[in-house]
Design a binder for these strands. Structure first.
Lengths: 188, 188
DNA sequence: CCTGAACTTGAGGTGCCCTTCAACTTATCT
DNA sequence: AGATAAGTTGAAGGGCACCTCAAGTTCAGG
């Protein structure tokens, strides 16, 4: 049984939207630990209203980032349908880095875990599975090295959350090609 | 004329050492923005003493990290003397990642700039020059791609400040080989 | 228009951190 | 042993952020 969702009063809905928008901006440049008071300030709303609508920080994070995570999943679905499997792989990597480079909050959402927000973790897992297919296809095509794993994606992407990510990613991609592969270290 | 350095009283010197040790630990796990009170607490010294010895945060950062930076420079010098230029290049990359993975403070020292602590910036520049030689040799040997630049090192290393850095670095290194090289993106 | 429920407000309590400084303690030198 | 410069201490003042709640305001349905 889903929690009964009485619709919000119109003013409350407006404030909710203002808060989410403000939070997107503030999380985007200051990260997920940004000040909640700053977010309320920017939304033009009192701190009490923020707490009314979002009792915890993760509730707000969820409201802001569930969308982008689904968007990432769709990107992966598109990537899985490329004729050229390697191109699809590269396409998804690039879109992911793009999103992270543009949004510090998104970067942190992707690298942290959220025990108190199962929806977030579920959305991440789903996108992960979709990208798993992309990886498999690229490996079967013989262009992606066989020892590439899903977690390597997290590594690669989380490591490119900076302005010159294009260049960094280009090196990595060269290192991902099957023809470039040398044995990986044992551990991990 | 060098600032006259009257020697510290014995107790003061002891406290200074305690503070630097504590700061190394705290910066190491909490980063350069860690609480100064926490550092004083861990050193078993009052917060006033910390401020007596290190009037600013950067003064303390300098005291902690000038050593490691010089150590990095020596590592680069060793790397420049490898018979196998490519092996020297890889050696320095690995040692650098090792230092950063082990010390969050060091990571931040390497990626930030310190206008108020010229000594830090100088030490970084020096290590950079030394590593520049390593790069040149590796490129002349034909093993390192010709379009590799010194800043790419900063990229690579700052991006590997996490537990599974070995694996990430392995991919990057495969991407750094001349034989793996594909054209890099234009910008930056 | 009126009323109750929904919503908003912001001051206030708590906690952590930064930084200063006047009063106190200690090392060192003669 | 005494004098004094050097060093230590921690309370106090100022900030900022978190979170709560009693009092006030606004919406929406009758």
């Amino acid at each position: 049984m889903p929690t009964e969702e009485r619709p919000l009063r119109r003013d409350a809905q407006r404030n909710r939207d203002l808060l989410v928008t403000a939070a997107r901006e503030v999380f985007g440049c200051a990260g997920l630990d940004a000040s909640l008071e700053e977010i309320a300030r920017r939304a033009g709303v009192s701190i009490g209203t923020l707490y009314n609508r979002f009792p915890t920080r993760v509730a707000l994070i969820e409201a802001v980032f569930l969308g982008p995570l689904e968007q990432a999943n769709e990107t992966a679905e598109r990537a899985a349908e490329f004729d050229d499997a390697w191109a699809g792989f590269v396409y998804f990597l690039e879109r992911s880095c793009e999103m992270q480079a543009a949004d510090r909050g998104f970067t942190e959402v992707c690298s942290r875990s959220f025990p108190d927000a199962p929806a977030l973790d579920r959305a991440k897992a789903k996108a992960g599975e979709t990208f798993g297919k992309v990886i498999r296809r690229a490996q079967e095509s013989g262009r992606l090295r066989a020892d590439f794993r899903l977690d390597d994606f997290a590594l690669a992407v989380s490591a490119t959350a900076h302005p010159q990510w294009r260049r960094h990613l280009a090196f990595l991609i060269d290192g991902f090609r099957a023809k470039a592969a040398h044995p990986l270290p044992d551990a991990d």
